[in-house]
Design a protein around this nucleic acid. Sequence first.
RNA 1: GUGGGUAUAGCUCAGUUGGUUAGAGCGCCUGGUUGUGGUCCAGGAGGUCGCGGGUUCGAAUCCCGUUACUCACCCCA
Length: 430
Amino acid sequence: MTTSTHAEALRAPTGTHDVMPGESERWIALLGVFASLVEKAGFGLIHTPLFEDVRLFRRGVGTETEVVGKEMYEFEDKGGRAMALRPEGTASVVRAVIQHHPTMPFKAWYATPTFRYERPQAGRYRQHHQVGVEVLGISDPDLDVEVLELAVDYLHALGLSGFTLRLNSLGDPACRPAYLDELQCYLTAHVGELCDEHAGKIDANPLRILDCKRETCRSVSAAAPSMADALCAECATHHDRVRAGLDAHGVAYLNDAALVRGLDYYTRTTFEITIPIEGSELTILGGGRYDGLVAALGGEDTPGIGFGSGIERVLLACDGQGAFAVAPSVPEVFIIDTTDGTIARDVVAKLRRAGIAADRGYGGRSMKSQMKSADRSGAKFALIVGSKEAAAGTITIRDLRGDGTQHEVDASTLVASLAALTTTPKDLHS
RNA sequence: GUGGGUAUAGCUCAGUUGGUUAGAGCGCCUGGUUGUGGUCCAGGAGGUCGCGGGUUCGAAUCCCGUUACUCACCCCA
């Protein structure tokens, strides 16, 4: 068991991490919570490739975005094709919809690794994992409310609280271009007051500046024209209906006109959920409507909406709140065989086929050391086979979690004896 | 991409103004007689002190470089 500490030792690449047994039980449980929630709402699981033609993300997410412009894992395959590891979940789903023409509405959920080449820090990875949902084919604002409620219900189902839902409308092609012009004019007039970072971004991404946290930009953006005032009648009506739905259902939110998302495809409803983690606010879920995306990627004009949520960040938040603790799985019984191991070999197989979670000791180690393994395994019972039991055709069952009582049963009735042991206490008390 | 911090045993960390065979706790292994864990006791395994170079009689300790980790900015899940 000697491991090298040399520099050349292989390790997980920067920004990636292993989810080891002991921790992975929690991942299984989280996926179970999410799956059962969204399946009840009519969503079906979709798997799409981890990598796609790089043009999908460039055209879908936008070349000007950080996510695509700077952070994408791009590579050329052996056939010379330009590919990219997915930096977000929506584009692939939309591509699949365009490719397969499912009947509308189309509702799908996913759980997938997501890749962004950036400097890792707390809650930020180069490979992280997201669960999410997408709905295509419906522009009804009541659907927006449903999707938002799913997001909130998911976090509540994990036991999280104290998070903030921010909501905004980014308008649509009827009203956003005019607003952007207006905003750019305003910003250009005040370019001298912007921070160095953003002074050069007025043309590329003016909305971004509204979200800058520096004092200089803040005072400029405070007086900037607001998208909320520039929404066309249709977008305003849509937004009002979404807010009315959330209000009617008691879903708390903050209407935040400065909320900007990092992906270009959003229209109308956009939102994100943040939560305090170790002193700072971390985004754990984000999404919105993307009514123009399908058409932009070559499909028929189809509205869409969805969200993605980072599993690592959500679990970090759970840690911070002591929420969603998941016990590691343990065997029900642990078999100890100090003879030649034949009985352990046969008993463990028999028990597992009977649906009993069973583990065992190996290598003919001493009774003491196998008992230690049994204890560590977390099993409720140790099944002991020594020379005495082997000769008599019996097995000793020892209670490891109670007072240590043990009794010898006939090997042929083991399964029944175990069943009796696990149900007897219940019968006595009821 | 920019800036700060850290790097010693599987894990969490000590290691004094540079000084001889590098330590602790936890974990792991083996024992504490005749077949029994969780407590206790004893013993044991396990470290080119991240890597490379320099200063020095002598470097885990000082200097430079490098890599990794980590935190923050940017951005985002």
